[in-house]
Amino acid sequence: MKTKKLALKTVYHILVIAFGFVMIYPVLWMISGSFKDNSEILRGSLSLIPSEWKFSNYPTGWKGFSKISFARFFFNSFFITALSTFGTVISSSLVAYSLSRVKFRGRRLWFTCMLATMMLPGQVIMIPSFLIWYRLGLANSYVPLIFPYFCGQAFFIYQMMQFMSGIPKELDEAATIDGCSKYTIYSHIILPLLKPAIVTTVIIQFYWKWDDYMGPLLYLSKPASYTVSLAIKMFADAASTTDYGAMFAMSTLSLLPVFLIFLFFNKYLVEGIGTSGLKG
C-alpha cells in the first residue's frame, strides 16, 4: 500500500514536471537561442545547449540600433511601467474602497459603469482616444501611456472589491466606534489588509504594461523614447539578415524584470485573488 502510494506520488511529480517542461520549452529555447550562433537558430536546432556558446550576442544586442542602446529602452520601459503600476494600485484601491465599503448615492451606477468598462473592447475607444490626445498635443509623449492608469483600472478595481468583501465588516464598525473616519479606515485598516491583492495587482499590471505593444506603437515615435517591446520589434524588422541571436539575447533580458517581480511576489499571487464575491 505504501509503495503504491509512493509510486503514484512519483508518477504525479514526473508528469507535472514533464508537462511543465513542455510548457516552458519555447521560453527556454529562446534563452538558449540567445547564446547560439545565428546560423544554428535558423537551422531550427532543437537542442537547448548551444553547440558553441556565443556570449557576444548580448553586447551586440545591447548596442541597439543607430546609437541608441538598450539601456535607454529599458529605462523608458521601467519609467512607464513603474509609474503606471503605482498609479493603478493607488487609484484602484481608492475606487474599490468606495464602491465596496461606502454607501453613497450613485454607487450602483458607477459600479455598473465599472463592469461595463471591464468588458469594453479597447479597439472601440482606441481611435478617438488617440485623436483626443493628439488635440491636446500630448500624443507624442508618455502621458497617454501613464495618466489613464491613475484613474483606476476596472479589472483591478473589481479584483480588489472581491478581495475586500472577504475583509470582515466588523473591523470597520469597530474602528468607527473608536472614532475613525472613513479616510482613516481606508489608510489604516483596509490598505494594510489589502496587501495580497495589491501584490497581485503589481505583478499583473507590471507585466501587462511591460509587455504592452499597441500603446507604445500608437503613441511613441522617437526611437529614443521607445520601450523595450517596441525596440525589439524594430530590431527584428530593420536589422540586416535579422540577427536572431542578438534579438533573442535582448528578448531574454526584456523578460528578466517580469521574472524577477514574479519570483519575488510569487507566493502571494493566489492569495491575492478574491473569488468569494463571484459566488451568487
Binding site: 543607430s66 488617440f130 485623436l131 493628439y134 488635440r135 500624443a139 500608437l218 515615435s221 522617437k222 526611437p223 529614443a224 524588422d237 530593420a238
Partner: peptide
C-alpha cells in the same frame, strides 16, 4: 537633428498619424 526611421509600411502609418495632428 532628432531622427526616426522605419520600415516602409510603418513609416507611412506613422506619417498618416502625424499628418492628422
Amino acid at each position: 537633428i532628432e531622427y526616426e526611421f522605419y520600415d516602409f509600411d510603418s513609416y507611412f502609418t506613422k506619417l498618416k498619424t502625424l499628418v492628422a495632428s
